[in-house]
Amino acid sequence: MVLPRLVATDLDGTLVRSDGTVSDTTRAVIEALDERGVPVVFVTGRPLRWAEDVFAHVGAHGLAVVSNGALVWDVPRDLPWLERPIPVDVGLAAAERIRAVVPGAAFAVETLAGIALETSFLERYPVPDGSRRGPLPEVYDAPALKLLARHEELAPQEFWDAAEAAVGDLVTITWSSTSTLLEISAAGVTKATTLALLCDRLGIEAGEVIAFGDMPNDLPMLAWAGTSYAMADAHRTVVEAADHVAPGHDDDGVARVLATVFDL
């Protein structure tokens, strides 16, 4: 096996343990690969405000793909390297279409400034103080890195299928939550397409990438990478799609695979 030149890994359910930590074992593997000049790129659905929790482990390359590919963050400079947002008119049109076919849908938007929510959007995690709430046309007043759609009655796959049929020509829809939360990006924006842009900058081809993930939002990245691993506790569609299965995220699965592949 030719050694990969870049590691792409999801965070939650993949690199990060259930308690939200990055283990000492995983940190040691990331540092060892960084010393060898092998970038370990975090490719996450997390918004910037949550991704910052792991930026201490980004390494010398300094880049992290967040918001499912809508943003590449330059960690050392604390600036965006690439933004791929949803224009306001497109996002509002998508929301109208989804609400028409799935009454009861509620929406929120993620931007560099943070999250803004419709009053009916029931967030599962605390939102930053000062986050705006109101009708979507009022709070969605700038291009969004992600448009979030939540439903309190439908199952995730049912909601996704209905939304995809309604707006698949306008935007890209995926999900990574155990609750019914759709994560909507601009058309053509996925973890894979943005990772490809980053790799092009580094002179690395898809066949030289090893990727890890656990949820449907990881599927494009796993399909694009030359070698792909699903976590043992991943969503069934991810296990079916990946080349290999790694131990679970609470068992340092990513680190254990990488230690074997690179003979660390």
Rank of each mutant, 00 (worst) to 15 (best):
I173S: 07
L33G: 03
A95R: 05
Y125P: 03
A70N: 06
D12M: 10
V43F: 04
I173E: 03
V257R: 00
P76L: 11
R49A: 10
V171P: 03
T25Y: 00
E208P: 08
H244M: 08
R256V: 03
E183S: 12
V261C: 01
V22N: 05
Y229L: 08
D89N: 14
I98K: 09
A206V: 02
A259E: 14
A246Q: 02
D263G: 09
P39D: 11
P4M: 13
I210W: 03
R124P: 09
R97F: 06
E208N: 02
V16K: 00
P137K: 05
E152K: 02
V209H: 06
L71G: 05
H151W: 10
M1T: 10
S67D: 15
G62Y: 08
A241L: 05
T9S: 12
M231L: 15
D74W: 11
S18V: 07
A259N: 00
V58L: 02
P47N: 09
S131G: 04
V72L: 08
L170K: 03
E52G: 03
V65T: 04
D129H: 12
P4T: 08
V209C: 03
D263S: 15
L117S: 12
R49M: 14
F262I: 05
D233L: 04
V43S: 10
S131H: 15
A100S: 15
W160M: 10
V75Q: 13
A211P: 02
A234M: 06
S176G: 15
S23W: 01
E31S: 15
H151S: 02
G62E: 10
A56D: 13
I86L: 14
M215I: 01
D233V: 01
L6T: 11
S18E: 13
V40Y: 00
V72E: 07
M231H: 01
A94T: 06
D12G: 08
Y140V: 07
W160Y: 15
G13P: 01
M1E: 11
A60W: 06
D10E: 00
E96D: 15
R36E: 12
V40K: 00
H249R: 03
E138R: 11
R46W: 14
E152R: 15
A187S: 14
V127N: 07
A60D: 12
A95S: 12
L48K: 12
R99L: 13
D250L: 09
T111K: 09
